[in-house]
């Protein structure tokens, strides 16, 4: 009876490998999500500072936009 339990599916030690695989897959997708998130924050900051056409932003960022070569006016 005990032996039977020991050999049951999921109790043969391989479950640890499975967990490890699942864990690393989850880590990779969290990593990708973080990367996309940070890239989006960066792109948003860049767009607001450099390219948004609100008059206030444009006037405030005017000299930088010219000097950085962003299309301005």
């Amino acid at each position: 009876m005990r032996e039977g339990n020991a050999n049951a599916v999921g109790c043969d030690g391989k479950e640890r490998d499975m967990n490890a695989t699942t864990h690393s897959a989850a880590k990779t997708s969290t990593g990708l999500l973080s990367i996309v998130f940070v890239a989006l924050v960066g792109a948003t900051v860049l767009f607001l500072a450099g390219h948004a056409q609100s008059a206030t932003l444009h006037d405030a960022a005017h000299d930088m936009r010219h000097a950085t070569g962003f299309p301005c006016h």
Binding site: G42, T44, V45, G50, A60, A61, M64
Partner: peptide, 13 residues
């Protein structure tokens, strides 16, 4: 300020 923000955006990317 806006030069800093622009390069912060570049830095994050």
């Amino acid at each position: 300020l806006f030069t800093g923000l622009t390069y912060a955006g570049y830095g994050l990317l």
